[in-house]
Design a binder for these strands. Sequence first.
DNA 1: GAGAATTTGTAGTGATCACTGCGGAACCCT
DNA 2: AGGGTTCCGCAGTGATCACTACAAATTCTC
Lengths: 178, 178
Amino acid sequence: MGHKHTREEILDGAVAVAFDDGLSQLTYGRVAKRLGISDRVVVYYFPTKDDLIGAVILSMGGQLQTTLGAAFAEPADDHLSIVRAAWPLLARPDTDAVFALFFEANGLATAGREPYRTLVPQLVVGWIDWLTHVLGGDADRRRDEAAAAVAIVDGLLLVRQLAGPDAADRAARRLGVA
Amino acid sequence: MGHKHTREEILDGAVAVAFDDGLSQLTYGRVAKRLGISDRVVVYYFPTKDDLIGAVILSMGGQLQTTLGAAFAEPADDHLSIVRAAWPLLARPDTDAVFALFFEANGLATAGREPYRTLVPQLVVGWIDWLTHVLGGDADRRRDEAAAAVAIVDGLLLVRQLAGPDAADRAARRLGVA
DNA sequence: GAGAATTTGTAGTGATCACTGCGGAACCCT
DNA sequence: AGGGTTCCGCAGTGATCACTACAAATTCTC
């Protein structure tokens, strides 16, 4: 019985499981069952659970960065402009699953569980750095603006998840970013 | 071997476990071990896991509401004023654990896991309602202001958890709420 | 102070978890 | 064709999970 499953296929399956059932339900057995293969194969490519989770989180981060990259073809100056550019790209049904995952990972990170505790802040700090770099200019001030923008966007997305898209849109309008 | 443990003692132990290890590590066995008793006792008072989790979440909600109640002795008008009143009360080390729990519960809720999926939104909507009521006045507009304030506060707290208190303070200053 | 209700210990249920040993099959190189 | 590496099915490890049967001890009710 020969070569059939690539690492990428299995990672895709793992991401799909995480999207559907959440990170905390991401197990070897579930990924294997979804792909109709033995869990031994999944273990082969991702020897420890942390390997599997880490790969999923990084894949998630890459996806977000790609989405956000489009928002900043031209630089923005203050945090409200940043939010105005980013919000329409993020407040969409097809990115809700990504953020559901992100918030769950964040929760597990704040609860101190590995590997989330080390991976997630790396990811977020990486985004802020990247945002800051994209915005250009003086690092200190830009970094604060980026952090402020991230705070607003995260908060709005939280409201969107919890209270629904309409509530988030109304809040965004109140904040003057939509 | 007689009557020794009250429901309240065990709930306190469960909350302590959740604070220290996170909601996802909240199990019968861990609570029992922490209190030095048999897990049978924990099961007796909280027959299902959902009972235990629900009790912890509600206890958490009550704690938050108590903390926030102090902020609104006198009413505020717009979302920035609300944030200005609430932020100093929340951006403190002794409430960080509560919000770590809250974010984890939110993550599990967005991941669709019961009983979080039904409990957490109830809690949040309840807070917004309560905030709206405290603020008084026309419901629709106030509700939007409250939602906007919740968005900002949540976002700031997220940044605080992920990037540290200093970053959150700088972001808050940029937003004009500190 | 008898009987009922409430509270706790001992033991164990089947399920699922992350992970492993072993052996065979598919592929690569020479 | 033969040897080495890579891949993967099968079976099983001990740990932990939520939860239960049963019975004994304690307290409540009368």
